[in-house]
Design a protein around this nucleic acid. Structure first.
Lengths: 162, 162
DNA sequence: CGATACATTCAGTATTGATTGAACATACTT
DNA sequence: AAGTATGTTCAATCAATACTGAATGTATCG
């Protein structure tokens, strides 16, 4: 395997580790990202130099996040994994969920401080409003991107939809 | 201290922990967020039930992120900390930096796979383009928010969305 | 039905990261 | 200048998390 690709996989591992995944999950996504074909658990374990148990756990984790999907191969009993069609939209949606939590949290803060702490209250209201603003912005952004994708099917839209 | 506020601080600690800070740093920010006055390192240590060493480390960390600032109190030698004016814009700018890293990473991936893996290449190009798109969107969002703030200074601007 | 090929779960281990108390450094006060 | 108050750094400890090999399920094949 080309060293540039190895490096890419490692970098993605580090990158996603900082975003809260395990490094192995990040590497797994990287490997699937650069693979032309789906890979079995054993393939993944071998090429990632990691136990099959770990791959199993991490692959299922990625699947629950919608980043990866299992596919069948005719005449083969094994599970194969491939990157799902729009993993990055999924990733951003996950972020958006965090934004919602931020809004609720800020609102709880506003209610907790009540009326007798004007500075704190103003800060928390700003936190709430900024999160709300950005949540809406990202929502619109995802929608817009989806439309763009649909409108220019040749450029990124490969294979069949769901 | 009101239990609702305790709860808020703990929730913020968890929330920011998932975003890559230490939980103590998150609690520290929460405490400063709901405080009307700046707090000294000893105040923070006492109210967070944490060693002064840990507070020192975490406070300086938050300061370097621009989330917190030191202020002086006349006639007092101690350092006091307060939340900085626009910590959330800062937080979002930090996210934006992560987006830039995502763009560079995706581009490195595109170059690594070259021309002979069309599916992988298309995915990585989409990753790059989506990150680029969102980076620009967030940049515009921050600018817009700042303008809005400047237009209504002193007002926390609750209520209306964009 | 027994054997085989998988995938998953689990207890134990290793690794990482945060926290602590103590030592150190620095700047005031008298 | 000595003593005191304060902030920082550092080795050791502690807690959380991920990884592993072995055991356990579950379905397919002969």
């Amino acid at each position: 395997m080309k060293p540039e690709i190895q490096t890419f996989i490692e970098r993605l591992g580090l990158f996603l580790e900082r975003l809260g995944m395990s490094r192995t999950a990040g590497r797994l996504l990287g490997l699937l990202l650069v693979s032309e074909e789906p890979l079995s658990l054993d393939d993944l374990a071998r090429r990632l130099h990691v136990s099959k148990a770990s791959v199993s756990t991490n692959a299922r984790f990625c699947q629950q996040l919608g980043l990866v999907q299992r596919v069948g191969v005719p005449g083969d009993r094994r599970d194969y994994y491939e990157i799902s069609l729009n993993p990055f939209e999924h990733a951003i949606r996950t972020r958006t969920a965090a934004v919602s939590e931020g809004i609720r949290l800020a609102q709880a803060g506003v209610e907790a401080v009540g009326d007798d702490r004007p500075k704190a209250r103003a800060r928390l209201e700003e936190m709430r409003d900024l999160y709300t603003y950005f949540g809406a912005l990202m929502e619109k952004g995802i929608t817009g991107w989806g439309a763009r994708r649909g409108a220019a099917p040749g450029d990124a839209e490969r294979g069949g939809g769901p």
